[in-house]
Amino acid sequence: MRKCSTANLDALLRTIAENASLYLPVDGTDGRAHFTKWEDGVKMSDALNTVRSAKDFFFPQTENLMDFKVEGKTIEIIDTREECEDFVIFGVRACDVRSFDILDRVFLVDPVDTYYKNRREHGIIVSMACTRPSETCFCRTFGIDAANPGGDIVCYKEEDAWYFDALTEKGQALLSKLESLTEECDTAAVDAQKDLIRERMDKLPLADLTADAFGGDKLNTYFNAPEWKSLSQSCLGCGTCTFVCPTCQCYDIKDFKTNKGVQRFRCWDSCMYSDFTKMAHGNNRTSQLERFRQRFMHKLVYFPANNEGIFGCVGCGRCLSRCPISMNIVKVMKELGGNA
C-alpha cells in the first residue's frame, strides 16, 4: 500500500497525465459530476457518482465502425480502426468497476468485439472506495463490496492522504511510476475506512434487498407475472434508464451518408424503444409491457442464465435517481420477488 499526501495529489495526477489521458469525475456547469479530461487546475468532484456511467470509455455512445466509398456499382470498404491511446480513468466506483466485467462477458466472448477490446486493453482503471454511499445504492445486493472495489489500482481517500494499492500488473506498473510522490505505508487507515464503509452499507435503506428470488432458472416464474402490467403502466418508453445504466449494452448499427461516402457507425440503443425489434414485416414486442419486461428479465434472468448466475445489474442506483417516472429495478425486484 502506498500513500500520497493530499497536498501532493495534483502532482500525482499530473504525473499520470504525462503518460496517458487522465479522466476523472469533475463537477460540470450543471452542478453534477461528469468524467472529464484532467488538466492543470481541474478539481476532482466530491460527488458519489457521475451522471453517466464509466462504460462510455469502452463502449462509447457512438463510434465509427468503418467507411465505405461507393462509386457506380462498386464498393470499397475502409477499415477505420486505429490503435487507441493509453488512458486512465480515475475514481471509478465499485459498481462501475463491476460493470466492466459484465460488459466483458458480452464483448470479449467469441467473436471478440475488437473496438471494445482495443479500448479495454489501453485503459487503466483506478477505482475508489465509497465512504458515503447514497440511499439509492444497492451494490451489495449483487455481491459488490464498496469497500473493496476492483480495477487495476484501488484508492482510498482520507482527509490528509490518499492510499493506493495495485491490484493488477498494469496497476503495479502505473503505481511504480508514482513512487517519488508516494510512500509505503501500513493499512491501518484503510482498514478503518473499510470498517466504516461496511458499517454504513449495513444501514443503507436498500441494505436488505436481495436478488435471491432471481436467476437463470426463473424464466417461467416471472415471464407471465401479472405484476408487469402495473409496473410498466406509466413507463414513458424513453431510454433514460438504459443510457445511464453501466451494464446496458444493446446497440444499433446505422449508416450515415456523408457528402463523399458512407460512414457505418454503431450507437447505443434501448430495448425500451418501440422500434427496437421492429423489422420489415412485424415486431415481436409490440407493447411497452413486453419491452419493459425484456429489460428487467434480461438483467435478472437471461443474463445470469448465460453467465454462471451473475446478474446484469450492479446496483449503482442511477436509474433510481434518473427515471422520469421513478420506476426502477429495485421496485421491480421488490414487486416480483415479494421481499418488500
Binding site: D113, Y251, D252, I253, D269, C271, M279, Q294
Partner: peptide
C-alpha cells in the same frame, strides 16, 4: 427470424 443488427449475439436485438 427476428430483427438482427450485429449477427454475433451482442447487440441485444434478437434476444
Amino acid at each position: 427470424e427476428l430483427r438482427m443488427k450485429c449477427g454475433i449475439g451482442k447487440c441485444g436485438r434478437c434476444n
